[in-house]
Design a protein around this nucleic acid. Sequence first.
DNA 1: ACCTGAACACCGTTCAAGT
DNA 2: ACCTGAACACCGTTCAAGT
Lengths: 195, 195
Amino acid sequence: MSTSTYHHGDLRRQLLTAGEALLVEQGLSSLSLREVARRLGVSHNAPYRHFPTRDALLAALVEQGYEDLAQRAKEAVSGAASGEAMIARGLAYVQFALDRPAIFRLMFSGEVDETAFPQLRAKSLASLMASTEAIADAFGEEQLHEAVISAWALVHGLAQLLLDGQVPEAMRSGRSDRQLAEAVLRSMAFALGRH
Amino acid sequence: MSTSTYHHGDLRRQLLTAGEALLVEQGLSSLSLREVARRLGVSHNAPYRHFPTRDALLAALVEQGYEDLAQRAKEAVSGAASGEAMIARGLAYVQFALDRPAIFRLMFSGEVDETAFPQLRAKSLASLMASTEAIADAFGEEQLHEAVISAWALVHGLAQLLLDGQVPEAMRSGRSDRQLAEAVLRSMAFALGRH
DNA sequence: ACCTGAACACCGTTCAAGT
DNA sequence: ACCTGAACACCGTTCAAGT
């Protein structure tokens, strides 16, 4: 056979995919390099060709997460009716967390040391800068920094609480996570005097 | 000697203290029962007298965290000037996260399965109910649920972002985490039309 | 860029037998 | 409510020697 037991150039991507699957199914402590290798049918140290340590694989998952989040926010804004851009952006942020809870959690867990993987800081900053411009457009310049931080904190906290299932049934009135997020963001936008 | 190498009734508390210290110093993956035991000079399976699994020790740390957070919020509100209660409560929440970052992160990391440790859900609910009353007093009843979730999401997200060091220097203007939190909360209260 | 296979220090957890 | 000590399956990581 000319096809041996060898795998080819996409092992790196397969490692990331299998890593995210393990994260979703079993949680962070069960994501071991050995288990990922086992799932892919490669030897227990094949992953070391692509990631020098387990933390490096986690960092790569986080990096990909930042990229995907930025991409989704961008698409949401460009597809939104005028005046709805900020709500669309916020909803995209929450929806990303709901769709990929394990990655979202890992991104903000503090488990991956961002000083050891400096590329992560740059990715997370790019997305923030985009929303700063949007907020400046929508709300004007007074207290811009506080407004940006508030908006970010609101959607970030909302995502976290929904992910954790912390919102009690009595407050949900049967609404899905998505519906709840939209209601909260619209309610806040209304209270701030612009809907 | 009548005092042998035995330890006494407070081993449980010592395990929690040492566990939090390890969490702070080395992170979650370095918090092992064996290392905690080593630090306290007890045998590697002495911890099993108090916690049936490693997860049970983590759950106990989280439970204690909820209690301490609720206590702080209560004190902050009772010591606040009238009209400042909500800001004081929010600041207490953020300050708890800043003072005990490892515990705060663990509480909301999803690493500790709250369905496996049902007492955790009750603790986190109690604190939420208290803030619901306060918000009803301050803002009236319209869209109360959305207001409660917004307020919680805002302070929760703010705490997370500060803990992660995600707020870029350009937005900080040299302010400490605490000062930044206060500025954001006051700015939001002002924008909502009540300061 | 992968393979096999050995090796090391670590871990959670369980057990047996003590005080 | 602790102790010692053995045991098991697992892990990250490193190495040597291959294709």
